[in-house]
Design a protein around this nucleic acid. Sequence first.
DNA 1: TAGTGTGTTCTTTTT
DNA 2: GAACACACTA
Length: 676
Amino acid sequence: MAFPLNPAQKAAVEHPGGPLLIIAGAGSGKTRVITQRITRLIEHGNPANTIFAVTFTNKAAAEMAERLEHQVGKIAHEVWISTFHALGAEIVRREAKHVAAGEKFIVYDAADTLGVVKEILRDLKLANKSLDAGAILARISHAKNALIDVEKMPVTSDYDEVAVRAYPKYIQTMKRLNALDFDDLILVPLRLLREVKEIRERWHQQARHLLVDEFQDTSIAQLLFVQSLAGPRKEVFCVGDDDQSIYGWRGAEVKNVIEFAKYFPGARTVALEQNYRSRQPILDVANAAIAPSERAYPKKLFSDKKQGDKPVLVECDTHESEVRFVMDTMNQAMRDGLKRSDIAVLYRSNGLAKPFEEALRLANIPYKLIGGTSFYERREVKDLTAYLRLAVHLQDDLAFRRVVNYPTRGIGDTSFERIERHSRARGLHLFEASRNWHAIKDLDDRAGRSLENFVKLIEAARARIEGGEPMLDVGKSIATEIGLYADIMAAGPTEATATKRWGNIEDFYKTLEKMPAKGLKEARSALAKLSLRFSEEEEEEGQKVILSSLHGSKGLEFSLVFLIGCDDGIIPHSRVDNPKATDIQGTLDPAEERRLFYVGLTRAKDKLYMMRAKTRAYRGGAKPMMASRFLRDIPPDMYERRSYSGPPIMGTTDMAAKAKAAREMLAKLKGGGAAP
DNA sequence: TAGTGTGTTCTTTTT
DNA sequence: GAACACACTA
């Protein structure tokens, strides 16, 4: 990065003032432009704490902070660098007096909110219809993101209808739980800024310069949030790439980029097209792949690195040989001296990673899985978190429900229903209702005493946290008291997975260790940040091969990239052609799938393999696959083509066969049916 | 009430 | 072919 800024980058960094939109092609050095811009603002006398840089992921925020520190030193810590959601949470926390949820709010993640919706569906007596709660939640979230009121929600299907009925109940429930979902973390601050003059003025005073990364991923709510936060000064510096807009399903509006000047009159635009990442042959393929896309800002990336291998399309006969080819090729590359962390396997959906994980484990190659179920969403971690959450936030009925009978302590469904009925009748939270179980109708003594112990456990934990004891100590003693270790080990299914689960708990201890020991309020906000994946669990930044979904790979780069599953139905996803009424728009946007493909291609610096398989495992059997339609848009002379039908990895089949044999043996031993 | 067995449904991406 | 939900039995 010792290169001087190119003219376009320079124009952006030295922009005199007013709203600016930077169309930054993949690998065009946008992070550098942002950090340089901040550096310049500081050098021109702007106090660091009046500069706000907003990203979408904690990873991006961390990287930006690190780079900035490199440039300006310790003063970088004073710049507000955070994700949209973390900034929103911070504003809510600081302006708690004006928020209904008050300072006692708790952040509900996707799993939590899904639980809320499921409960509402139960209440609406619709659960039997086997409704997909996720589809309802998606509609609610979509409405929130687009700032659509209940009355104005579109109703064109049964699902829409249910969503309309569920929406007000959802708001009501969240309010009762004192919970904010991810959308609220944007919406609530937006409302505060709009409606409360005092708050508006305070933040306009504070946020003098706003820099937004990945602007193409902003939703309407986020755009308005940026607008409101910037105020009349409109010092907004937004960087985005319409070609990399891949979060439409989450409410992102490319329109925010395309109609930027509408929202920020007088805005200027700068385009960055020089790519500093990839070799030209890779860019040729990427440019060709994205070309058919309808684009507001057509770009043709170019590189100084003219030399390089053409990307390779490898057609494997099965998905097993796909794994084999990738493993062999990556091993060779490592023997040639390539670092593990310079190698990535990318895929459209997380399920595709499994065989690679297995193969890497078998080969003893360390790997890092990006995305997938987050660490904090692991069941065992959530269980322990729920105990802590309940302790600091007694009205968290969802947490209560999760742990009141985990590990099993004799409070089954019937008992739970009795507690619930009682609490509803009295308008109490579940925990409050449990405090004197004698009052609960029909609750038998056994369950009652058990409940009493549970209440004591939680209250003891609460008292200790209140008294300023470290979260780690409290967490550990809860784990001991409930016999978490024994329970995890007993639950299996295999000893290996149980050990891994317990390992997750031990990793979680490291997170707890970092939490402040200053009483309930601090503990609450530390726990709230867990949902935002705030804390960095990435201590061991070792040398690891990267496995990532295409979504998770945005912003990253690798010398060697294997884009697996370049088959039709994988990318683009089959739901492009199979409209299913349960989805928001009914179907997936093929244009977004193309951009996703493009994002994958542009991750590669030196060598790119596009992998596909003629048949893939599908519900047991083998399904024949066709090449991705996107490959047809790439002129054949731009890439090399190979066929591969190597044997599957020994170990994998071995293991599978052994497991199968073991299962059959077990079945036999248990007597009864003869195996065919 | 808890644990086991049987049937059913899957596979989109994530702050 | 696995994970999950549900029903059934001890």
